[in-house]
Design a binder for these strands. Structure first.
Lengths: 139, 139
DNA sequence: TTGCGTGCAAAGGTTTTGCATGGCA
DNA sequence: TGCCATGCAAAACCTTTGCACGCAA
């Protein structure tokens, strides 16, 4: 179904940039800045359009973080691996935690059996506040 | 600290409307529509401002759900009893399911205790495929 | 009387879209 | 050659803000 997609320079550069920054999440402005610094020009519209595609295919995960819930994107390096566990995202500091926990993973099974709903863990984000930020707030 | 807040007709009507719809969440347009149908006029700005207050005090929960992550609000009837719930969203048909399940709610507690992460259920959406769409695909 | 609340309109920021052109296959 | 992709600008969307006036306490 994807055989109608053309391979263009813009897509290559966007994907390359995302892969080079797979260890963190970027918002659209940051992406354009990074590309610009390398003399690569991609229009905002194209970036949005391609990001949508990448999120659909699961190659990139979209997060909403910060006070204003800004959209951020991050390349998922190990798609196979990451699609089997849940992610925790701190809305304060933006930290991404890979949650490897059987008890939580069991929920998928429970929801399937009891609620007949097939959860796709790779797409699910538990938003909340991480330990560090909780301590910060307590002060 | 709240003794500086004035009691106005607009606030009364907004709160009343939210309480009358405590069984579901509403976005701002829906709220204005409901109020309008009752010949009650409240400006959009006032609604946003008061919703912010109610979310701060915990009387109302804010959800970000759906494809476009639209903001929805719901009155929390039993503030003490953590009447929050999770959402399941079908990525095929877009159906939103309100998951009221103790076992799933317990996960919040587990993640807090074991992983020291404070999950905000209002921000969490379990993406996956609903029963109907599973059957469709199987055909 | 004091000063918070309201409505209005404008501004703000982010994302989407229509259209003509460009470029991959 | 056919059709998807791109860039541009405008539009769409949702939310916030400044200001003058109104109203609760």
């Amino acid at each position: 179904m994807d055989n109608k997609a053309y391979n263009t320079v813009q897509k290559q550069k966007i994907l390359e940039m995302l892969k080079n920054n797979a260890n963190r999440h970027l918002n659209v402005d940051e992406m354009l800045f990074i590309l610009n610094a390398k003399q690569i020009y991609v229009s905002r519209a194209t970036l949005y359009r391609y990001l949508d595609v990448l999120v659909q295919t699961g190659e990139v995960q979209k997060f909403l973080i910060g006070e204003n819930e800004k959209a951020c994107y991050q390349y998922i390096e190990d798609k196979e691996h990451c699609s089997h566990h849940f992610h925790l995202m701190c809305t304060e500091c933006g930290k991404l935690i890979h949650l490897k926990c059987q008890k939580v993973d069991d929920i998928v099974e429970h929801i399937m059996e009891e609620h007949k709903f097939m959860v796709d863990p790779g797409r699910v984000v538990f938003y909340g506040i991480c330990e560090e930020c909780q301590n910060k707030e307590a002060k």
